[in-house]
Design a protein around this nucleic acid. Sequence first.
DNA 1: CGCAGCACCTTTTTT
DNA 2: AGGTGCTGCG
Length: 721
Amino acid sequence: MHSSPLLADLNAAQLEAVAAPPGHYLILAGAGSGKTRVLTHRLAWLVAEQGLWPHSILAVTFTNKAAAQMRSRVESLLEQPSQGLWIGTFHGLANRLLRLHHDEAGLPREFQVLDADDQQRLVRRTIREANLDDKRFEPRFGTWLINAWKDDGLRPDQIDAGRDPHGQHWIDIYRAYQQACQRGGLVDFGELLLRSYELLAEHPALLAHYQRRFAHLLVDEFQDTNKIQYQWLKRLAGDSGQLFAVGDDDQSIYSWRGAQVANMQHFREDFAEVKIIRLEQNYRSTEIILQAANHLIAHNGDRLGKDLWTEHKGGEPIQLYAAYNENDEARYVIGRIEQWRSHGERLDQSAILYRSNALSRVLEQALVEAKIPYRIYGGLRFFERAEIKDTLAWLRLLNNPDDDPAFERALAQPPRGVGEKSLEKLRAMARERGVSLMRVAADPALRANLTGKPRSGLTEFVAIIDELREGVSERVLAEQVEAVLEHSGLRAAVAALEPREAEARGENLNELIAMANSYRVPEEDEAMGELAAFLTQASLDAGDSQAAKHADAVQLMTLHSAKGLEFPLVFIVGMEEGLFPNQRAMEEGPQQLEEERRLAYVGMTRAEKQLVLSYAESRRWRGGAAYNAPSRFIRELPGRCVSEVRPKVQLTRPSAFGAASSSKPLNTSPVKLGGNVRHPRFGEGVIVQAYGQGDHARVQVNFDDHGMKELVLAFSKLEFL
DNA sequence: CGCAGCACCTTTTTT
DNA sequence: AGGTGCTGCG
């Protein structure tokens, strides 16, 4: 019935979704069910088969990576560049709207986007300037609160203070913070969304224009949308726009930052005749892995319901390793990876996942020792590194002298004798006159209010800025970055650090120059000027695409950042109560536990062929030792899917399955993992591994003074302590 | 003013 | 353990 190559190789449900007639659609796309495929083919189909202009389509994702991927896939399907098509993140598209209509939105053309760090600093300052105690009014909490309000579409005037006496203060802080942003032409992430929503709400002609333009709206990861994002979509769709939303309630793992799975329900209620299409055939994992994942997620109530199946029958059982401690766990994982590699497999086909970043350290160490290349995702991002942020602050100040947060950061780094006291004077003068810090600093008459080192330091600072600004027009972007590094003294300050640090940070600075060198202003930002556009990109993009080295390396990341990815071999380490599910979730209740369970589900469904789970009986944790029980999620897996990997020596170790208290035969062997031993030559140590039985039994002991040794039990004169 | 040493706190992360 | 913010001293 269809001849389009776009529809070839699609299963029935995918086909139904891709070639669906006009209307609203909610695609419930299970893990590995070809969600991205459906989205890109749908988009290409609309253009190629329905003759729609790319111009009339808007596609939204959550990450830049997903957006870039979607664009490139669509372009290759269509075999032409997707001009006029709006593909981007919610924040990226909101930014675009605000740039295009900055006058209507009440923003300067070159407004800057504030990152989370800058935002919190500004909130802290706002609290202090309101003469409130930042112990009672924690900036962290305030930032969270303001973001939550913005995510809910609320302005200070729309918030009910409630009975909490703090409530009104917080609302006032929000208001003052917002004024400070407005004064400096600064926009935080939440503001991008809210402001662009208001832009549409308050300008009917503009709204009508975009509603007419965007006949189709495609949304990825719909379960992760928050309230304002959904409202934004709804408004943009209006009465005529058709919404095609793809999501999976079982993979909703971001409720802690405002995502509302309920939007899937709202969508069905708010739009006429929403058709639901389920994608339930999984193309990724083996039957065993899938069965286990299905079984696990079935422990959650409150699901839209969906059962994944696959044609890949059977498969390797999930392996479960009960480690003695975190080092043992790391060693086991590394052993498995070496085995994998020795079978001719690629390292980048394997991933180690964990609940929290703190767990990566041991693994990293062990990988270094084993000389296995690895790549860690997450942690601090390129644009968040101190030396990069310092440089960007100078650039921001060149771009916009009224950017107060940038002023404060640039003035402090490198230090030039102007400290908190002097800065406070500057702030007071600025507040009094209603101008920015730079305007105060640049006025010699006002500078006269300072004396000694602060005054000379500030004068010097202003002179450097002036000098840099004079040369701006003659320099291309990369030269400007270099000029800043040179004249600000930042380059010198980095060079003066201890050699290791100096090298690493210096490389980052070079990387920044390289990025500036290869930067091309995107078409839609041409009105903005090279520097402003570059700074915008720096704040909207984590900058980790630069770090994407193509080396063959084991992938390490949190479970959260693994979403959307797949690997033939997947390890999930730290499967322990208190870690995963984490303590907080256990305390907060069933809702949070269900989210943890979805996280486990997401992790498990990343695995294509082999899934390995592990936990440690004892673990060094926050300085002390923790003895965590195996994660409840292990017990929630069907026993037939799991095979427990255990050392071959008889050991006392309760099975992770079933009642943990079931009586076990008493262990008569003195060999106990973790047991302390003494050797006549090596001294004291700890048994970390044991193999074999009887005369052939060997133990691996980590000696305090002599390191790791493998000993044959029958011959070594080990004393068990 | 700036630095060194000390107390405190600890999920997950994108934009 | 490790990073961040605060305090007290030079």
